[in-house]
Design a protein around this nucleic acid. Sequence first.
DNA 1: CTGGACACCTGTACA
DNA 2: GTGTACAGGTGTCCA
Lengths: 203, 203
Amino acid sequence: MVQEEREQMFEKPLTPSDVGKLNRLVIPKQHAEKHLPLGSDSGLLLSFEDEAGKAWRFRYSYWTSSHSYVLTKGWSRFVKEKRLHAGDVVLFERRRSAADRLYIRWKRRRGLLAPNTPAAAVTSPSPPPCPPGTLKYLSTSERVSERERERESVFLPMVRCGAGVGDEEAEMTRKTTKATPATLIKAKRVRLFGVNLDCAPEQ
Amino acid sequence: MVQEEREQMFEKPLTPSDVGKLNRLVIPKQHAEKHLPLGSDSGLLLSFEDEAGKAWRFRYSYWTSSHSYVLTKGWSRFVKEKRLHAGDVVLFERRRSAADRLYIRWKRRRGLLAPNTPAAAVTSPSPPPCPPGTLKYLSTSERVSERERERESVFLPMVRCGAGVGDEEAEMTRKTTKATPATLIKAKRVRLFGVNLDCAPEQ
DNA sequence: CTGGACACCTGTACA
DNA sequence: GTGTACAGGTGTCCA
């Protein structure tokens, strides 16, 4: 795959609620306001590309009741397909040369006993459905029902995932990206990150 | 009371959600589209008469997201006053000679052990607030709040209802009523069931 | 401030 | 496999 220069916007370690029945991801306010300005809109559809080139559309909005920015619609499908769990980390990136291209990546939670060991983390680019080399126990509630396994092929409660390993461990730079200040978002054409985007305004 | 010839449009066994906190009744699509055409309107106020002659106005609308027809505004008050529970059945009728006259009736759920026993069902016509001869325990969540008792007078957790019994068991014919095909609904004056109605368009 | 109304959303069942 | 129906939810608005 061609090397595209991307820069990380932010990352978030997933909470139990982020991967639970609430079907939403809370985006820390600081990151949301710096990188994903909502403007005056109540909601917005954003498209992120995963490591396989698959597009993921998420509804992005602000919940006044909880004063938080959230990804709602579409998020639960992502959680399911990627088999994300609490502690796993999602990373949001954008292409440096074209800020309208958004990317989403993920990595397994670092081992609790070796938090600084790079090898302890498994990232998304490999086989997305199941991280390689990990021994994972799926509780009954986590098991994928037979009827909607989508593209998965392993559904045993205890599965040993494929041997494919070796992935560039994303550099976890904490440096804040030099983001364009929040721009007013209107209708279909949106100026985001200083770039005009075609975002479908809801309804 | 004078014998008015009515015909049943449809009936629906209430689900827990229909009588719960969602404050809405889902009307099965087949029945909605056959008997309650919405036309191009997003919402409509329909007035139904109960067995006591009391008028009940419900907001009737279509939820595009779930592709379902629903009664919303006013429905929860009906559920409360009639003490409806999951499994109870609501019946929607119209007068044969004047299709603009809509009626709503209800009956208690049939006993699970004697599903074909007419006496096992209690219907609406008697004392509307509480079916006669029944000993009913209201859980805290079912209790009517002091603030919106409206016309009710009994609010004890455990109440023994009046002695009035004996009601004609409504014939549960499954025959589909020969309904007028959906007619375009516009503004205040509406053609419904082949009859012009004055329905207040919302907003 | 609270509850009702409202317009969304989703998992499941099923044809 | 895909789409439809709907039971069961959500946050937001507003009286």
